[in-house]
Amino acid sequence: MNFIELDSVTKTTKKRNLLNQVSFKIQKGEIVTLEGINGSGKTLILKAILGLIHTSGQISVANSQVRVENKYPIEAGILIENPSLIEGFNAFQNLELLAKLQPRIERYEIYDLLRIFHLDKAGNEKVRKFSLGMKQKLGIAQALLGQNELIVLDEPTNALDKGSIADLITIIKEINESGSTFIIATHDSKFIDEISTRRLYVKDGEVYDEEQ
């Protein structure tokens, strides 16, 4: 049974085809990476999978059709573009705010994530004083919070140092072992080598697998 299935997904603007007949399947528990140059359509594919944009073609997640107007069929942790954070809150408060929308999340999960990403050292420091890398780590922590069935990350290694990337790889593998499926868009080939269980390549709005 396919966990995620895209069938002939196309997104067109007046000027050009942004996604062109994209079709692929993702099984539960995979770590799929989307690789491609800037503007190739990686982020747009993630948005299509999440039902954030209207497309033609079929997208199904956990056997349910994905549509913008409907609720998303499953719970998903998402980081696309810039993390949305309350600048006047500290790291814990930002995660706690998100946790309040998912009552099953325990406080210790927040502390664990802060510790893994070394954000616990920031203590009560407000997010507005965070560096770009710290904000990125907090955005990733938001996406990983709750270890949802599906976790979607767009360029997660942006602004991260080597040590933080190593921490990210470790935590992604840990969460993946507990059953979460990952879809990660990145152009960081070293990170892809470390993390990916399946690589997809995106070029001019089309998706190719490794064999192609």
């Binding site: 954030l52 107007e69 719970e75 998903a76 942790g77 573009e81 998100l98 938001q142 949802n148 599906l150």
Partner: peptide, 15 residues
């Protein structure tokens, strides 16, 4: 626009 992406994953509808 900034929050809907994150909230979409928590099964909140556009409505």
């Amino acid at each position: 626009k900034s929050n809907s992406i994150k909230l979409r994953g928590l099964k909140f509808s556009t409505l």
